[in-house]
């Protein structure tokens, strides 16, 4: 008798069809978040503050109460939700542009205040939904539609290492960077997402996971090649790892 070893998470809406481009890692990240909500048994007590960008579509797929925030303000709205309803599990799902460019003040201050919120940030080194422009995480040398000859630091400055910055905030309980380039790393990513929710549940402070992801459409690469780029170009700069975990330090 065969046993079922994989099924779609119950925290996803029934018969979900993602609107992401073929091969986009957003789909994996959304599934991992849903699996974590299932495992923690918190779907019915969770509120999402959605963002702007491809990441916003998560509310069409995940079956939780959701509030759409203006660009960059998901963390402020999440703060308002959490202060009004401290008993709820509150999380954001944002892109790097939303979290670390237009919303950097909101993100850093939520971490500094130690808001009991979980933030998931997709880092794909570009603004995906608007067609692949230079963003806060665009790698040095990377060609985008607004860095046509590559990111030259004299002209464009440097990319931000988000997980490291969030780890420096005293209110942060957990900060990690993970990758979705291999199945082994997908499993690690899920563990990190789970930890980022657990620190919230235990009231320890801000939980954060930066997820290195692909944007095959705007990178103009096959999904397979896009994962090679994550390994060969992104991971040497954005090193995966756990940058802060108060449950270990204490």
């Amino acid at each position: 008798m065969a046993t079922q070893v994989f099924k779609l998470p119950e925290s996803l809406k029934g018969d979900v069809k993602y609107s992401f481009c073929p091969g986009c890692d957003h789909g994996v990240a959304v599934r991992l978040v849903a699996e974590v909500l299932d495992e923690l048994g918190v779907r019915e007590n969770t509120i999402l503050a959605a963002s702007i960008g491809c990441s916003v579509t998560i509310y069409d797929f995940i079956n939780v109460d959701s509030l759409e925030a203006p660009h960059g303000r998901a963390m402020a709205e999440a703060t308002g939700i959490k202060r009004a309803r401290p008993d709820k599990i509150v999380f954001t799902y944002q892109g790097d542009g939303d979290f670390a460019s237009i919303g950097l003040a909101e993100s850093m201050h939520a971490a500094l205040r130690g808001e009991n919120i979980t933030a998931i940030c997709i880092n794909n080194t570009t603004y995906g939904m608007t067609g692949g422009q230079l963003g806060p995480t665009t790698l040095v040398g990377q060609v985008t539609t607004t860095s046509p000859t590559g990111r030259n630091v004299d002209y464009y400055g440097y990319p931000i290492k988000i997980a490291e910055h969030i780890a420096l905030c005293d209110g942060t309980a957990f900060s990690a960077r993970v990758s979705l380039d291999t199945v082994a790393n997908i499993k690690k990513a899920k563990q990190a997402i789970k930890k980022a929710f657990e620190v919230q549940i235990h009231g320890l402070g801000f939980g954060f996971v930066e997820i290195l992801s692909t944007c095959p459409t705007n990178w103009k690469m096959s999904p397979e090649k896009a994962h090679e780029r994550v390994r060969n170009e992104m991971m040497p700069v954005f090193k995966p790892g756990i940058y802060k975990d108060v449950t270990v330090q204490n």
Partner: peptide, 21 residues
């Protein structure tokens, strides 16, 4: 072998079930 690697990798939830046994 029912390892579910394919389902874990699939970004579009197209591999909906995996059975081992």
């Amino acid at each position: 072998i029912g390892c579910a690697m394919c389902a874990m990798r699939c970004p579009d939830l197209a591999i909906t079930e995996v059975y081992r046994g």
